[in-house]
Amino acid sequence: MPIHKAEHHPLDAYLRTERLPHVWCPGCGLGIALGAYLRALQNVGFDPQETVMVSGIGCSGRAAGYVKMDSFHTTHGRAIPFAVGLKAARPELNVTVFSGDGDLFSIGGNHILHAARRNVNITVLAINNYVYGMTGGQLAPTTPESSITTTSPYGNIESPFNIAGLMAVAGASYVARWTTVHERRLQKSIEKALTKRGFSIVEIMSPCPTTFGRRNNMRGIVDSMMYYKKYSVIKEHPNPLDGVIKPGEKFIVGEFMDAPDEPTFEDKLEELKNKEFLKTSQADRTTWILEHRRHLETLAKIIGGEQ
């Protein structure tokens, strides 16, 4: 029985529809992740006019080209610092970096560490598909051990990053991980990340059936998604250090870090411009800065397993 045909999709208001269908392969999780982001935006009621998406290079980098808002498709690895500069210039904007694991954690690895450390008030949606998809499926810093990629033809001999652990330790205010199968929780988590003040990151495990799945026993499009369904374990407040992912083993999804609100990098930059602040003594400035040391205690508790 045919389905009703439609001209428009409910998310079309947020999409540059003239550019659809997008370039992503059938069954690619990027579209699911992007959909979750747009629904989250809609739910938190952000004005698209004051919302900016910045992408890097790779399949995920193309997301910026599909959203009907100010959006930038930058160079490989540099989406984060571009966003940092943009936020420094216009702290009132909602800036989301939508990029892939290779872009954010390999070539751009340094930037994300420092953005988290500074508590820059941006939201990062890190699409982790285990692989460099756009260029044909090469090894990524997230590829699980023993997985086959075009540049690890005998199986990956390296350990992948534990993104959740890395980000929590670097100083992020909010760290979560979901897969594209957890679409509803993912969306809620993105909503939280968007409204969280400070550096927030949602790692979105997303299948690449084309360049990863078919080389790693997830032949069909649906198989990759079913893998996530089967192997993911939802946990309340998991320890970020337990965020390691191993092939054929259960892995944790959930909110690894949700630190109390603290002044963001932009808040502090604004404070520096304050004439009264500039006039205060060096001792007073030191006190001010130390009073706003980032949630170190919370972090220690979480990593220490108290939470």
Binding site: H9, L20, W24, G27, G31, G35, V181, E183, Q187
Partner: peptide, 8 residues
């Protein structure tokens, strides 16, 4: 709707 990667 939410699982469709293609806004279709």
């Amino acid at each position: 709707e939410r699982i469709c990667p293609d806004f279709a």
